[in-house]
Design a binder for these strands. Structure first.
Length: 424
RNA sequence: GGAGAAGUACCCAAGCCCGGUUGAAGGGGAUGCACUCGAAAUGCAUUAGGGCGGGUAACCGUCGCGUGGGUUCAAAUCCCACCUUCUCCGCCA
């Protein structure tokens, strides 16, 4: 959510900056009218309420002195009616205004490249050497099915398409990656470890920006106003919802492991095979709460923490700066880290690191005080995958595949795999 | 799932039956001042934060006793719904 006062005072400028995002801004046009109507009504009702409060004191004094209060009561009856009419109107307007505010995307940071879609994203850097194979490289689903470590067919029977069983050393590999990543971030990067709920309520989904606009992307529990989390970002960011944090405790950094659930509405036919696009996948997520002046430096650090995972696994990747048209709804700036997938001859997203500035903090009411008696200010929130587990498994299988169909275990993972050096 | 109890300011807690003088007694804590060489103890004082609106500003208004509605001239106090916590029973990993 944007700062309403800022939007009021800089309407044309904000609107200009939002046009590059390629989102529907038709709602925005009602803002100015509703906003001024709202303030008008507030002045009116508050005047009447002040009058009523004054009269109430007098009525109670009259009653105490056993004098006739009937005329005053009669008059206030009318005032009361006026108040309730105006209040009702005010409520409607505030609801509409709130709905508009919740549907306006974040303002892109000035350093974000202007562009329409993913073709306009800019490569910031790349790392590692793409493997050279002297045999025909295979897709990870083929490698995995020959090794019997992933089972998509039975998952389709048990649940449906876009689900998977990890099996044997496949399951072991995924679990090794979870432990490897969690320990790296907790022990070496200084994050506090979390295992959050994987079901959250509507307020949480609204707080981080998944709702109200993207409800069809989420799995909702029938009969409940609960949702399966699409990312641990939701529970972990909302962990501090409606709180005022002590400035001296910032920055706060959490690393959370959770399963993530996405309906992938509108993605039918894309990445139908393999681990790239599942309804359920595991992810290690990094979440920061920082002072506003620190958030852009933090975005670089956070991205570096995610990159560190790929470096230790020796997987080639590049870092892309998302252009205005590919930023997503909530981010002011976003880097995607893309890992090399040999069978596709392409880089594929494996982490997404975003600075939301105060966009989520305003929705979720997350503030801090610089000093004990200072005014509360909104924190800036950031998060990034560190990393998506399924895609990491896919990248390992493809980049570490051997001519005989076996897969070398990256050295950094061997301590988590009982020293095993190869999956065959 | 069944039965019961409770949610009041930073914390504890009175008020709620019998609506108005409680914008919230009292205590603790915190802060300031006094006493003291200093501390403790003691005494005095302050301590609703926050949202929203108006105003160049000082400041003013409004909302606020779990949340949302309702009744009333007026609600912490009455009515309804919901949420959360606790206790007991049942079930259960």
């Amino acid at each position: 959510m944007l700062d309403m006062k800022y939007l009021r005072n800089n309407f044309a400028e904000v609107k200009g900056k939002l046009t590059h995002r390629g989102e529907d801004l038709s709602e925005l046009d009602h803002f100015e009218e509703l906003d001024s109507k709202r303030r008008e009504l507030i002045v009116q009702t508050e005047e009447l309420k002040a009058k009523r409060n004054e009269a109430t004191k007098q009525i109670s004094a009259l009653k105490r002195e056993k004098k006739d209060a009937e005329p005053a009561i009669k008059e206030m009856r009318e005032v009361g009616d006026q108040i309730s009419v105006l209040d009702r109107e005010l409520n409607e307007i505030e609801e509409h205004l709130q709905q508009i505010m919740l549907s306006i995307p974040n303002i892109p940071h000035e350093s974000v490249p202007v562009g329409e879609d993913e073709d306009d994203n800019i490569e910031i850097r790349n790392w590692g050497e793409k493997p050279a194979f002297n045999f025909e490289e295979q897709a990870h689903w083929d490698i995995a099915s020959k090794l019997d470590i992933l089972d998509f067919e039975r998952a389709a029977k048990v649940t449906g398409s876009r689900f998977v069983f990890y099996k044997g050393l496949g399951a072991r590999l995924e679990r090794a990656l979870i432990n490897f990543m969690m320990e790296l971030h907790a022990d070496q990067h200084g994050y506090v470890e979390m295992l959050p709920p994987t079901i959250v309520n509507r307020a949480s989904m609204t707080g981080t920006g998944q709702l109200p606009k993207f409800e069809e992307d989420a799995f909702k529990l029938e009969g409940w106003d609960y949702f399966m989390v699409p990312t641990a970002e939701v529970p972990v960011t909302n962990y501090h919802r409606d709180e005022i944090l002590a400035g001296e405790n910032l920055p706060i950094k959490y690393v959370a492991f959770s399963s993530s659930f996405r309906s992938e509405a509108g993605s039918a036919g894309r990445d139908t095979r393999g681990l790239i696009r599942q309804h359920q996948f595991n992810k290690v997520e990094l979440v920061h709460f920082v002072k506003p002046e620190d958030s852009y430096e933090t975005l670089e650090i956070l991205t570096g923490h995610a990159e560190r995972v790929l470096q230790l696994l020796n997987l080639p990747y590049r870092v892309m700066s998302m252009c205005t048209g590919d930023l997503g709804f909530t981010a002011a700036k976003k880097y995607d880290i893309e890992v090399w997938m040999p069978s596709q001859d392409k880089y594929r997203e494996i982490s997404s690191c975003s600075n939301f500035e105060a966009f989520q903090a305003r929705r979720a009411g997350i503030r801090f005080r610089r000093e004990a008696n200072g005014k509360p200010e909104y924190v800036h929130t950031l998060n990034g995958s560190g990393l998506a587990l399924g895609r990491t498994v896919a990248a390992i299988l493809e980049n570490y595949q051997q001519a005989d169909g076996s897969v070398i275990v990256p050295e950094a993972l061997r301590p988590y795999m009982c020293g095993k050096e190869v999956i065959k």
